[in-house]
Amino acid sequence: MRGQDIPMPNQTALLPNTVRFRTLLQRSETTRGFALLSPTLLIMTVGILIPIGILVAMSFWTQVGFDFDTTLTTKNYQLAMDRPIYGALLRRSLWMSGMATIATVILSYPMAYFVAFHIHRNKMMWIVLITLPFWTSYLLRVFAWKVVLGYQGVINSALMALGLIDAPLEFLLYSQSAVVITLAHAWAAFAILPMYVSLEKIDKSLLEAATDLGDGPVARFLRITLPLSLPGVISACLLIFIPTTGDYITPTLLGGPDGAMIGNLIQKQFGAVNNWPMGATLSIILILSIGAISLSFMAFANFVRKRIS
């Protein structure tokens, strides 16, 4: 017994490295967590933090011909504040993607509700069907809307054929509404899926209990279903608002002069205008604005949730 005990410390030292690594992993919850995270963490660092770092650095540089003057200066930020066009485009972008977000969430909620509560068989098939538009390219979908909304497009020709209008409706294409409509369609799946998940999670007996306690269908929806699905609504809002604010493809193809967004301006800075530091500055301002709006939205949603409950 004793004779076996004595060489133990030496044995640990002789263990191969892999075993020692494994015991280290098993010992600490945190280490294990980081180990699981490590591939993602690596991609996040290389793919996001480094480019953002470069962007931040570049926003303090100046463009000189085809070269950068790397002396740090806040001149770009001052310029962005002074020229009204930047601010106006930023406000318009936030407004338009805000509208697109609201439209998408309102249009998608009934669909998520339907699949969560009224489909009992083949739910997976319905989920796949919802993602079906994503099987074609984003560009193609935007072009499709051009066909639908155009002067000679589906809507205008149909309305004219029916005799409801004499001339094509001009506001349909090359306008803010065209951009909002297209974004609302293009991002629908991103709204439906998180809302579906949170609706699906609601225990059906809670709904029966609400009915049993005297709520009609409307009261029950407002008091139980909606508050319990709010987490899904909030994530849907953020999932749509954040990427659409910086979008430049849809406004380029469907926006016209009235529908241009900040993304178009940033794209021009890195392209035709060839002022990368200014593009970087505008990008940083956009990131900060989106961050501020998202945070205040989350705080507001939290406040609302506490109020209804």
């Binding site: 225990d203 007996s205 029966e208 209990a209 049993d212 306690l213 009609g216 139980i224 319990l228």
Partner: peptide
């Protein structure tokens, strides 16, 4: 159900979590 003079205690209790 919401117009009946009865109330129910559910097997899962159905306490509103929010």
């Amino acid at each position: 159900p919401h117009h009946r003079p009865v109330n129910m205690v559910f097997q899962s209790y159905a306490i509103f979590p929010h």
